[in-house]
Design a protein around this nucleic acid. Structure first.
Length: 646
RNA sequence: GCCUUUGUAGCUCAGUGGUAGAGCACUUCCUUGGUAAGGAAGAGGUCGGCAGUUCAAUCCUGCUCAAAGGCUCCA
């Protein structure tokens, strides 16, 4: 007999060699129908794996993230089987599960492939799924495996086999399809009830741009047709919220071929939104002890030679600007830090001066490959809400916590309630590429971990993800559709203070090197606005709305009264417009609603006579008639709670 | 940068080997109205650009530019 410990701590005894599926069956048939695989002592395994020692066991279902991944990975095999049947001779690369679904990289040779084939593949997959084909695991020697794929003439699988050790190799088969795979898999194809091929794209074999480009087929599957429907609705909703679409519709920003790729033009309404955000953060930063600075958009080559960026990014991204004097060479600034280092150096600093926090909404320009550009999230010219904190090593932890406070304040104010953070540390073994001494690194890494913990941040730790110049912490937020976005970042830097020979005089009257912390809560205004648009679907909170209100006269006869009302609201810093068009009130309301204007002020005969206004709220309808003062109070109150409606 | 797809009016999109259409937006006129689209008329396009095939190209072919999806990249 062996002991099985369940996740809830319950311990039960079973005979040796029992499988997770048997155990599920012994609990209930309903459970067994839902078991996809199992987690045995923290290792995912097939539900048919015999258990031979005392173990911890977790039965995995569709409700577990790992269960989903196994489900999708198994679906990738099914996709491959369908393609092999429909397109004989296809060679297969890899087919893993991803965050939402799975893909398979295939080499179709000369065969054409396009969207018109999606339906046929979906149908074939469902047809195969209905056959309830079992996923069968088989251990195989390397020799036999090589022989199998040599006969099949699949050079990709052969290449994968090269990297595997004999004795560790397993095949999985379902129906007539066999794939090299370490598993685990779901019991049979019968679990797969709904299939959707999502897209097809090119992808380099093993992610290497020098290798062959394969056809990558993205797809997703579900155990219930209804879940597929819900997923497709979500994709539809995401499409509606696409910031590029809303940016155009709401006239927030635009691009011009003449101006150049990836160089956004902020339209009047977008500029209002952006300036509100800047002012909001500016005020928060002043309260947090930051000093605003302004630096130029270009700098002499020397600055970047000193910073080391020239050597690292060199000619690929830095295009010189030559002046008539041949000895001068300038570059557009790709980051603000070197400029801020020079500000630090403008006078001798004492330990009493630290921390020094220099903040700038600094516009920077970076070369991005043309294929990389994407709306406002990836551009060539953007404005960072940048700041650099120069502090003593013993202040790092405290400063880190203050930055976390500021970032969380910003997130909460803007309606991002769900956030997490990734702490990027050095590689555990390979440490040659990191500059700075071990003591400083250890101290900084510990400080980050400790301050994140103290602030209650849900974190994951990524070893080897640190920049060569220091560890960092990146924030992720979850938006209204459950999508994750990377936002702000905090990075410790040992390199620049060294390269710029930054110093301060300590209490011991000796020179010391300050630590530099880079941080940007938004990341960049462009990216943040994009995420804000997608999160709110363009329904910005009142304080951010480009037009907060529209005054809508019932007819021309009330234009003067409408203008008078608007002027009075403007005096109270409310912004908007008067709709003077010769249209019926229904039309004016519709257009204001479509343009997502939060408040509509309707004035006609009745209002003019009583000296009142009729207020209508977007998405809610008529609020009735009130005095202008009552409305201003209403608006003020809404603005004081910086929240969102989604 | 690479692969796939797309490019027709300001926007959203039809369409054809014989030099173009709708809706919305715009202009003018009629209408002076009460909480999500009043009516009429008008104006607006080298069919992304450049070559080629053809008697004839927006349509077929090649190149090029841009966008979308993906890959690689991201100080």
């Amino acid at each position: 007999m062996i002991k099985i410990i369940f996740p809830d701590g319950q311990v039960k005894e079973y005979s040796k060699g029992i499988t997770p599926m048997d155990i599920a069956l012994s609990i209930s048939e309903g459970l067994a129908r839902n078991v996809l695989a199992a987690k045995l002592n923290d290792q995912v395994v097939d539900s048919s794996t015999p258990i031979v020692t005392d173990s911890n066991l977790q039965l995995l279902t569709w409700n577990d993230l790992e269960g989903k991944k196994i489900f999708w990975h198994s679906s990738a095999h099914l996709l491959a089987e369908a393609i092999e049947l429909l397109n004989p001779g296809t060679k297969f690369g890899i087919g893993p599960a991803i965050e939402n679904g799975f893909y398979y990289d295939i080499d179709l040779g000369d065969q054409e492939f396009g969207q018109e084939q999606f339906k046929a593949i979906e149908d074939k997959m469902l047809e195969l799924a209905r056959l309830k084909l079992a996923y069968v695991r088989k251990e195989i020697s390397k020799k036999d495996a090589v022989q199998y794929f040599t006969i099949k003439n699949d050079e990709y699988k052969l290449e994968l086999l090269e990297g595997l050790t004999d004795g560790d190799i397993t095949f999985y088969s379902q129906g007539n399809f066999t794939d090299l795979c370490k598993g685990p898999h779901i019991p049979s194809t019968s679990f797969i009830k709904a299939v959707k091929i999502l897209s097809v794209a090119g992808a380099y074999w093993r992610g290497d741009e020098k290798r062959k480009q394969m056809t990558r087929i993205y797809a997703i599957t579900f155990p219930k047709a209804k879940e597929l429907e819900e997923h497709l609705n979500l994709l539809e909703e995401a499409k509606k919220r696409d910031h590029r679409k809303l940016g155009k519709e709401l006239e927030l920003f635009a691009f011009s071929e003449k101006v150049g790729l990836g160089l956004p033009l902020w339209l009047p309404k977008g500029t209002i939104l952006r300036e509100r955000l800047e002012n909001f953060l500016r005020r928060a930063q002043v309260r947090a002890g930051y000093s605003p600075v302004i630096t130029p958009h270009i700098a002499s080559k020397e600055l970047y030679v000193t910073s080391g960026h020239y050597a690292k990014y060199g000619k690929d991204s830095f295009q010189p600007i030559h002046t008539p004097d041949e000895n001068e060479e300038f570059f557009l600034k790709p980051m603000n830090c070197p400029h801020h280092c020079e500000i630090y150096k403008t006078k001798p600093r004492s330990y009493k001066d630290l921390p020094l926090r220099l903040a700038e909404f600094g516009t920077v320009y970076r070369y991005e490959q043309s294929g990389e550009l994407h709306g406002l999230t990836r551009v060539r010219g953007f404005t960072q809400d940048d700041a650099h904190i120069f502090c003593r090593p013993d202040q790092v932890e405290d400063e880190f916590m203050k930055v976390i406070d500021l970032v969380l304040y910003v997130f909460k104010a803007l309606g991002f309630d769900q956030y997490s953070a990734q702490i990027s540390l050095r590689d555990k073994v390979n440490r040659e590429k990191y500059i700075g001494n071990d003591d400083d690194w250890n101290r900084a890494e510990e400080s980050i971990i400790k301050s994140a913990k103290e602030k209650g941040l849900p974190t994951t730790i990524a070893y080897g993800e640190a920049a060569f110049y220091g560890p960092k912490l990146d924030f992720m937020v979850k938006d209204a559709l459950g999508r994750n976005w990377q936002l702000g970042t905090i990075q410790v830097d040992y390199q620049l203070p060294q390269r710029f020979e930054l110093e301060y005089t300590g209490s011991d009257n000796q020179k010391h090197r300050p630590v530099m912390i880079h941080r940007a809560p938004f990341g960049s205004l462009e990216r943040f606005v994009a995420i804000l648009i997608e999160n709110t679907a363009g329904n910005f909170p009142l304080w951010l709305s480009p037009d907060q209100l529209a005054v809508l006269p019932i007819s021309e006869k009330y234009e003067d009264y409408a203008n008078e009302i608007y002027l009075r609201l403007q005096e109270k810093d409310l912004r908007g417009y008067v709709d003077h068009r010769d249209e019926k009130i229904g039309r004016k309301i519709r257009d204001a609603e479509v343009n997502k204007v939060p408040f509509m002020i309707i004035v006609g005969d009745k209002e003019q006579a009583e000296g009142m206004i009729s207020v209508r709220k977007k998405n809610q309808g008529d609020l009735g008639s009130m005095t202008i003062e009552a409305f201003m109070n209403l608006a003020q109150e809404e603005m004081s709670q910086l929240t969102y409606e989604n």
